[in-house]
Amino acid sequence: MRYARAHRLVGTLTGAALIAASDLVVGAWNLSMPAATGTGFTVVPFRQELPAAVAALAVASMYSTMENLERMGGMRLRCFERAHVVTAILAAAALMWTAEAATAGPGPAGAGARSALIWGCAAVVSGRSFGWRLSWVLPVSTLFPLIYYGHGHDGAARWWNWPDQPANAPVPWLLAAASTLIAAAAFRATPWRGHALRRVHWPSRLAPTGAGRNEVEASNDNG
């Protein structure tokens, strides 16, 4: 399919699958990282950070080599794009669930899938804001506060530190739901929708002025 080739779906999703599969090898590695805790450091299992890479790469498949042409696409293309971004996020979550279930059991698998969902939504917001090739910006930006500030002085994970919370913790799932709503709103905020809103609310700012207005008036007189 031409859409799949333009978005390099096979290569991108294969890369995401390989990163998820690396959980079998490096997931159990413990990283000693500086942190605002009583001891000045915290131990972060590498498996907690892998979902960010998997989700960002999966959502990056929204970038197309025919980007300029696709901007002029119709409703059918928009339907493809909506199905694409939803499938990319769900695929990232499924990949992490499978990798974690094979290595650590169902509990960490649920937490890994939830992290992929949250980071996938962050990647959608980043891609819509900065371009799909930069969909990794927001997911990577969350790593520092999660690692450095994500634990109290006693070393316990804070409520908003979703990668370090168990799968049955309710607050991270609320964060996942909120992230989904924000990502959906960001995905719908296309440039042409923004232009349409500006035309409705600030029509005078978009009206031609100066030489442009004279040209419009002249063309109306000739017509």
Rank of each mutant, 00 (worst) to 15 (best):
C121L: 03
G131S: 13
E49M: 15
L138I: 15
A58F: 02
L197W: 15
S141C: 13
S179M: 11
G152M: 05
M66S: 09
R133A: 13
M75A: 14
W162M: 02
T65Y: 11
V125T: 12
S141I: 03
W159K: 00
A94N: 04
R8W: 08
T209M: 10
L90F: 09
A53C: 06
S204R: 12
P145C: 12
A183L: 05
R205C: 01
R114E: 03
W119T: 10
R193N: 09
G38T: 07
A101I: 02
H153L: 15
T39H: 06
T180H: 02
Y63A: 15
G27T: 11
T190D: 07
Y3L: 14
A177Q: 03
M96C: 13
I147S: 02
G155N: 06
A184R: 05
L31P: 06
L9Y: 08
C79A: 15
T180P: 00
E49V: 15
V25C: 01
A21N: 02
L117D: 02
L31Q: 08
S179G: 15
R76L: 09
R114Q: 06
R193K: 13
E67Y: 09
A123Y: 10
S126Y: 12
V44L: 12
V171A: 09
H7F: 10
V171N: 00
L77K: 10
S219N: 12
N222K: 12
A113L: 04
R114V: 02
G74T: 09
L146M: 13
L175W: 01
S32H: 07
S135N: 08
R213A: 15
A16R: 11
G212S: 13
A88V: 07
S204M: 06
G127V: 14
L174I: 14
R78K: 14
I19S: 06
A196T: 07
L117H: 07
F144R: 05
R205P: 02
G223D: 13
L18T: 08
V137Q: 07
D164W: 00
E81M: 14
T37R: 04
S61D: 03
R198M: 14
R133Y: 07
